[in-house]
Design a protein around this nucleic acid. Sequence first.
RNA 1: GGGCCCGUAGCCUAGCCUGGAUAGGGCACCGGCCUUCUAAGCCGGGGGUCGGGGGUUCAAAUCCCCUCGGGUCCGCCA
Length: 566
Amino acid sequence: MDVKEKIIKALEDTIKEYVGEEISIKLEKPPNTELGDYSVNICFKLAKLLKKSPKMIAEDIVKKLKEKNIEGIKEIKAINGYINFYIDSNAFAKYLTEKICEEKSNYGRGYKKSVKIILEHTSANPNGPLHIGHLRNAIIGDCLKRILEFYGYDVETHYYVNDMGRQMALVVYGIELFGLDKNKKKDHAIAETYIKVNKYLEENPEDEEKILELMRKYEDALEKNEDNEITKKFEFAVNYALDGIKETLNNLKIKHDTFVWESSYVRNGLVKEVIKKLMETGKIIKEETYMLDLSDFGIEKKMVLARANGTSLYSTRDIAYHLDKLSKCDIGIDVLGADHKLTAEMVKAALKLLGSKVPEIIFYEFISLPEGSMSTRRGRFISADELLEEAIKRAKEECNKRGVEEEIAYDIGLGAVRYNIARISPEKPMIFKWEEALDFEKVGCPFIQYAHARCCSILKEAENKGIENEAIFNYELTKEEKELIKKLDEFKDIIRESAENRKVHILANYLLELAKIFNRFYANCPILLEKVNDDVKKSRLKIVKSTKIVLEIGLGLLGINCPGRM
RNA sequence: GGGCCCGUAGCCUAGCCUGGAUAGGGCACCGGCCUUCUAAGCCGGGGGUCGGGGGUUCAAAUCCCCUCGGGUCCGCCA
């Protein structure tokens, strides 16, 4: 049982004696160290019940608590109606740093949950390269995968490949008309052709018919589970784009376990089966086409299940995909742009009608450009490749300026890109600005990596001097040391909060705070200087070692490497 | 028109779910700190109607209602 649990237990017991009622307690942290390590505001709530001032109640409770002698607690004070607890920092520092250094990369890891999660993310259409909007999806998804795994879930990631949409037919038609620029990175070549064919179609609307025919032929073949000239053309185009996308993902250190093609659900007949089963629910209305009435779920709009010409629609295929996916896992999570909110609700409702589980969905708002929203079709976007390349270039310049080897530029550049997206809470709309995306001189990831590099250099220097780290802590800790210790202790709570709420930015922000506190410690608590007492040296080295471990795990969970030197 | 999301200093952002002690950071700006483990750093300073108005509460950035501004979605696109 850790200190916090002991405090809560003692408080709950005391309050039960005091008011004769069971009241559950939540510990909070006071705004500054003078006010202690933990506090509780329960007296404000008891004031009305007991018809006494919070201040008096706090004093009474503190008196009773002191008699209990809570282990690990050095002092308890009643201040302005709050009850403040002061822990025995020395004992705690010893306990915590030893634990971290022993558990190493497993510090903070959750117990094995035996729960299978399928996490779908990125899933960008194969009609061009990933742009910075897709990047938000991909980074949130990938960080989440890492965090959930660390927390103890069994996670499989999916990339759902939309190979059957109109946009793919356009690409196939475009390739026939214009071919592909073989000198370009594959996904960029596809985009170029896609943009061209869109423009061509605007000028030649009569060709629209050919697009519809392509789609129909593709679906026909799939329904018969045939391979023919048409399916080969689609597969070629999709794979061509996907090759490029995978290369980008690889550069971003993002790996999907499975790529699921939506056409596979037409091939295996599940789409047909879904429609059939939905028919049986009696919620289908036949107008020009089949529509699903979802008013029972509070959705006024009816869901269209197929085109009038009989071809299937994205959302219907999506139901089939989810049905299959959710049958293979305990929890399904999708990362989707906020523009999918309504359709996602519809898919969920349809799944409920079919008696299936529903996915959890993480929505993120768009990243737009200062001049407006992005559009692959109009060629108005900034590609992930471009951004990463620019970031690495910038990182190289910084390295040169500082006389550090250029090899780490990739870690710094990618870190900046990933971190700048991971740190923002997903429901916040973002406007992309180059100067912000590439601003890694001070704030953001390099700041954290720098703190880590400082840890490394101290530890290396200590090794050279033959000084061991050891949790002695037989001296009065400075406030920087106390704060750093407390922050390191928070890590496991942060992991839990991040994982359970599926919120990557919580971890990202924590790491920045940790780095900030470490830098303060670094500036105020000398370690290897002659004048520093040996026990202090060893103890502080233990703190440095612990910090390094936590920073490394944390950044690792965001898919970011920590250079040993910067 | 209706649904959902966002609005916190010149700019970016945390906190909002689960209401409490002077609203945390950062950029930019001003002033200090390298004969001490890496100055991609540290310390100090100015800068805030938490979009606006009501309400609930001992207590509201946080909960409720209204309102303004921006984004996004609203049957055969994905």
